[in-house]
Simulated assay, not measured.
Amino acid sequence: MPILSNLTRPKGDPKILTTGPTVQSGAERLAKGLGWFSIGLGLTELFAARRLARGLGLYGHAPLIRAFGLREIWSGMMTLSVDKDKGLQSRVVGDGLDIAVLVSALGHGNYRRGNAAAALAMVVGITVLDVLVAKAVTAERSRPTGKPRDYRDRTGFPGGIEAVRALSR
């Protein structure tokens, strides 16, 4: 990543030599991956809706798949934003809609129900992952109930209050 960052930096800015350790937790990194996965899946659903509908035996449902693609892209963007927990929750709700449509494709009249069953198994697996990551991210971001945040040790000055006093002398 430093190479890409250095390509976009103005000429006078110092170059990035190495990056430090990440401060993101495992759940945050996994949420980021799910966000990018959601955007990729949404683009696929948006641009290949007719082919996906035909492969699953859902003829005539391409507009619904396109709508699901837009939902996936939106959920992915939310998951990559500061509101990760809201994005993950919207992914879980969207997974429920996907499951409902795929269950309807398992009927005996659908000669592609094997494809629909495989897609359903994948969506159920992703749903379990979405639920676990959403719970983990929400737990990390929540503070204990009844305990207000304590900012008494903060001054608002980068070097602390003593550095500002020394500078003013």
Rank of each mutant, 00 (worst) to 15 (best):
M1C: 09
P2Y: 06
P2C: 13
L4C: 11
N6R: 07
N6V: 05
L7Y: 09
L7I: 11
K11G: 05
D13N: 10
P14T: 13
T18K: 04
T18I: 07
T22D: 15
S25H: 06
G26D: 11
E28P: 00
R29D: 02
L30A: 15
A31K: 02
A31Q: 03
K32N: 12
G33F: 09
L34I: 10
L34R: 07
L34A: 00
G35Y: 03
G35W: 00
I39S: 06
L41M: 11
L41N: 06
E45G: 07
L46E: 04
R50A: 11
R51A: 14
A53S: 09
A53K: 10
G57M: 09
Y59M: 07
Y59G: 12
A62T: 00
A62C: 02
R66A: 05
F68N: 09
G69I: 00
G69F: 12
R71T: 07
R71V: 08
E72M: 11
E72R: 15
W74T: 12
S75Q: 14
G76E: 10
G76A: 14
M77F: 08
T79D: 08
L80E: 05
D85S: 13
G87M: 07
L88F: 10
Q89F: 10
Q89Y: 15
R91C: 10
V92K: 03
D98M: 05
A100T: 07
V101F: 11
V103T: 05
S104C: 12
G107W: 09
H108V: 09
R112W: 02
R113H: 04
G114H: 01
A118Q: 00
M122Q: 14
M122S: 12
V124E: 01
T127N: 13
L129N: 13
D130V: 03
V131R: 14
V131W: 01
A134T: 12
A134E: 09
A136F: 01
V137P: 03
V137R: 00
V137H: 02
T138M: 05
E140C: 01
S142N: 14
R143I: 03
P144Y: 06
P144L: 13
G146I: 06
K147T: 14
P148V: 13
P148W: 10
R154D: 03
T155G: 15
T155A: 13
P158S: 13
G159H: 08
G159Y: 05
I161Q: 06
V164D: 09
V164A: 11
V164N: 06
R165K: 13
